[in-house]
Amino acid sequence: MENTNTPVTTRRKFINYCLGTSLGATLVATFYPIFKFLVPPPITESTEASVVAAKVSELKPNSGKIFKFGSKPGILVKTPSGEIRAFSATCTHLDCTVQYKEEAQHIWCACHNGRYDLMGKNVAGPPPRPLEQYTVNVRGDEIIVSKG
């Protein structure tokens, strides 16, 4: 006759229970991150060396747009003649972020009134160097800016 209440049996049951629970918890601890990893993150693509800076349709001629390029700002410029160019938006003077001035048709830094022409060349004010130019490619409606 099986005695189900001897201390040995109770102990065995307890150990088995502990073993099962803790191994189960370990599995959960292992698979929870894996499951989370599989869920697509909110930002769905890595976008650093090249970035979709804007839509062609949202950029009017004679306008500019600041975009995030890695950890630095870039500026996308559509010239009055419709050509699209991209530059680093960091002013070469004191690292302010430059902007596009529609009425004057140049790139302008508000901090010290530095001016760059539409090729990124410093033409007036304190900036010592031209803005770094990026490569622009248009794929469908997307303007893709890449370095080099």
Binding site: R11, I15, N16, C18, L19, T21, S22, L23, A25, T26
Partner: peptide, 15 residues
């Protein structure tokens, strides 16, 4: 959790 599991295995082995 992992340490608990190790301890449980240890007890199991002893048992």
């Amino acid at each position: 959790v992992i340490l608990l599991a190790i301890a449980a295995i240890y007890l199991k082995i002893r048992q």
